[in-house]
């Protein structure tokens, strides 16, 4: 009895499939699919220099900063950046400056336009000790956070607030490649 049931079931399944199959005669296309790149793409996030939004914007301004074009950022955010910097770091009090010779207004004037300045003429680094190379790009091995901390807290000669001006993590945990794609393979 049981066997017959199973048999019946199997038969009906296949027969039904046969009987009703006339509406799924999709023909397989052999051509490459035409890719659709249409539409408008609206900005959600942007970044120039590392950690700028994190450090200098209040939580409530972070979203807006991400959708303000760099050309408009300085007008909208520089004064807020300056207030935050003075609040954060004692190094700029009383006209104090950073090692680039910038006071609070000048430094935040640079940072509030969040673009990475890149040289097409040689060395590219965030900072390597050579004044001429400063802010000429960002290489993978650059210790950008320590450089930013030094500029924020370190004063005119990088000697102020030593406890705040180095996060004491100075290199990546994997060696970078010398050739394309340069980033190390995943863990």
């Amino acid at each position: 009895m049981k066997n017959i049931k199973i048999l019946t079931l199997a038969l009906t399944v296949s027969l039904i499939a046969f009987n009703c199959s006339n509406d799924d005669d999709n023909t397989m296309s052999m051509e490459e699919p035409v890719l659709d790149f249409s539409g408008t793409y609206a900005q959600e996030d942007q970044m120039g220099r590392p950690a700028v939004n994190t450090v200098f914007n209040a939580s409530a301004d972070k979203d807006a900063f991400n959708v303000t074009t760099p050309a408009d950022q300085s007008a909208a955010f520089q004064s807020k950046f300056e207030a935050n910097l003075l609040n954060l770091s004692p190094a700029y009090a009383d006209g104090g400056m950073n090692a680039l010779g910038q006071d609070a207004a000048a430094f935040t004037g640079l940072l509030a336009t969040d673009v990475l300045n890149v040289s097409l003429d040689g060395t590219t680094t965030f900072f390597d000790g050579e004044p001429a190379n400063t802010l000429s790009g960002r290489a993978l091995a650059d210790d950008v956070i320590t450089v930013e901390l030094l500029l924020i807290f370190g004063g005119e000669d990088f000697s102020e607030n030593p406890g705040l001006s180095n996060d004491n993590v100075s290199e990546n945990d994997k060696t970078f490649l010398t050739s394309f794609p340069y980033l190390a393979s995943p863990h």
Partner: peptide, 16 residues
């Protein structure tokens, strides 16, 4: 991308 001199560059993510 300009050949020589300095450029300014940044990256954006944009959603359809």
């Amino acid at each position: 991308i300009g050949g020589s001199g300095k450029i300014n560059t940044w990256v954006e993510s944009k959603r359809k």
